[in-house]
Design a protein around this nucleic acid. Structure first.
Lengths: 133, 133
DNA sequence: GTACATTGTATATGTACACTATACAATGAT
DNA sequence: ATCATTGTATAGTGTACATATACAATGTAC
């Protein structure tokens, strides 16, 4: 199976560390099924080149995703997406945490001037997207 | 007007810095109108005591909110909520950013095992909550 | 099979941020 | 005036981020 070219992008001005941006971007693709088990990811140096960061930064992101069970890192051979048993625990604490973080994000957007209607529309669109994925 | 007691809480294990947790929590209350203009906030030392952090940490959060236009800090007198002219700019870039962050957060929750249905329900509930606030 | 290119790994260094400690300055009540 | 209370300013310490550089594992070319 050939190495895909996941279109990930990072924003240096966002304040969010590059490691987390990379891990977050890849996690989105993994969760949404755009990166399926068996796929070989590009090497850390290749992605680092494209993003303009050091390869160790990408390697750290890979390690985080490997720790979450998404990737299998093989020394000298690269990184492969693995079939992951998603924990089916519907933890109440995690849901609570999700709700709070969502509230925080919405508040931040409102504070920046995005209208309530616009935000609500985005939330509904995302809800629809999640259910059909 | 008496000083209210905003029920904010921080989670030391979340990895999110305390400063941001405090600022985020207060911003939620401000955006949602649970803290109205004219309200005197508790002193930085009082909140710091309740949260178990140093008062300078709370002071920094206050300064951030003051920079956003939510608070008026008065040396020796405390912090007061001010009437804030919310910028009405519906920036497209900001909306884009919001969408991406939302995707990332949803992916993280899915990765942690929360079901798609549960997430969708939370998103819809938040959408409803936003529109009526 | 040996050299070589390519891959992920490990360690060290500089920088930025978070958090705390401590001293300071402004305000209002006694 | 004195004092307690408030936010402010500066310095010190620890941790995370990012890079540089050397290392180890793998597969291929010859």
């Amino acid at each position: 199976m050939m190495a895909q070219r996941p279109r990930i992008r990072i924003d240096p001005a966002s304040g969010v560390p590059a490691v987390r941006q990379i891990a977050d971007s890849l996690r989105v693709l993994l969760v949404e099924g755009q990166l399926v088990p068996g796929t070989e990811l590009p090497s850390v140096r290749r992605i680092a080149m494209e993003l303009g960061v050091h390869f160790n930064t990408v390697a750290e992101a890979y390690r985080q995703l490997a720790a979450e069970g998404w990737l299998d890192l093989k020394h000298g051979r690269g990184a492969v997406v693995v079939a992951r048993a998603v924990p089916a625990v519907n933890n109440r604490a995690r849901t609570e945490d999700f709700r709070n973080r969502l509230r925080g994000m919405v508040a931040q957007m409102r504070s920046q001037g995005i209208s309530a209607d616009r935000i609500a529309a985005e939330l509904r669109a995302m809800a629809k997207r999640v259910t059909r994925s």
